[in-house]
Design a protein around this nucleic acid. Structure first.
Length: 217
DNA sequence: ATACCGATTGGCT
DNA sequence: GCCAATCGGTATC
């Protein structure tokens, strides 16, 4: 019997799925991590912090697909980040997997992160993608089983196991990390979720406030 | 065609 | 804490 979470799990609203992913085991390419930090992005809801805020583009196409697809994107000219699409088909909701604790495949993880402390292997979204060997070749792929039957839709061997969720009493929320502009406002979008007291959770950093006109005065 | 910028990270002060 | 790295995507001209 397949240990994976069913597609119905991901078809819920992103604000339900993001905290529910905490504590789950995520495995790819020989390394398994216990997810300790996530963030929700809801293009459908007019979330200005979302890549999907300005509508469909070739880059964000996977977000507009069905729940259960990966959305792996490239940023800062060097980093890849893993997101998991949730919600209704076309809703452009996704969870960013920000951090995790390596619980299996330590030798492989260490080989991918030479000179890096074990605590930092997946402490941050780009670090997590590196340790799990995820890049642009892994975007827009179906990680659910059974897979959807759609022309051209390929699958990925990314395993999210059921039965490993975090204690709800230990879940904390706060503003998203490094989101510039209005989408970074924690009072409006406290959509970051993490497990309390976990050393693998990434440090908080506010987004850059960018004024549309010059400085005041 | 070109300018701007990012859901970050690592190195240095 | 500050800042450079590095380049594809997107908007704008």
């Amino acid at each position: 019997m397949d240990p994976r979470l069913p597609r119905a799990f991901f078809a819920r609203h992103v604000l339900e799925v993001a905290p529910d992913l905490l504590g789950r085991n995520l495995a790819h390419a020989g390394v398994t991590v216990r997810i300790t930090e996530t963030e929700a992005y809801a293009g459908e809801a007019g979330d200005p912090g979302s890549h999907a805020f300005r509508g469909w583009t070739p880059r964000t196409a996977p977000m507009f697909g069905p729940a259960g697809l990966t959305y792996v994107y490239f940023t800062y000219g060097m980093h890849w980040m893993l997101c998991l699409v949730t919600g209704r088909d076309g809703g452009a909701q996704a969870v960013l997997i920000r951090a995790g604790e390596v619980i299996a495949g330590h030798e492989i993880a260490a080989a991918r992160r030479p000179g890096v402390a074990q605590r930092d292997w997946c402490r941050g979204p780009a670090r997590l993608a590196t340790t799990l060997a995820l890049d642009g070749s892994h975007t827009g792929l179906d990680f659910c089983r059974p897979p959807l039957r759609r022309p051209g839709l390929r699958s990925i061997d990314l395993v999210l196991r059921a039965g490993s969720s975090a204690d709800p009493a230990l879940i904390r929320t706060g503003p998203r990390v490094g989101v510039s502009g209005p989408g970074g406002d924690g009072s409006a979008y406290p959509w970051r979720f993490w497990i309390d007291a976990e050393p693998t959770v990434s440090p908080y950093r506010p987004g850059v406030l960018r004024t549309s006109s010059g400085p005041p005065g």
